[in-house]
Amino acid sequence: MKNRLKVLRAERDWSQAELAGRLDVSRQAVNAIETGKHDPSLPLAFRIARLFDMTIEDIFDDGESA
């Protein structure tokens, strides 16, 4: 699944460790999500969306949306 996490993080000048701490996950998890190796659970997707004050669809794209 594609996502804009890396761009959104860069816009705020946050390191992966900074974002990981704010989401209460490991830095490896942030890296895996950014590179598309790992899809976050629904609760984590909501946490990410709330942190960036966006909707889940604004951040994640499963390629099915019109």
């Binding site: 946050w14 390191s15 900074e18 990981a20 704010r22 830095r27």
Partner: peptide
């Protein structure tokens, strides 16, 4: 350190 980085270090230490 930002608040997130500090929490990441704490998490890493705990692990």
């Amino acid at each position: 350190l930002g608040p997130g980085e500090a929490r990441s270090i704490k998490r890493r230490r705990r692990y």
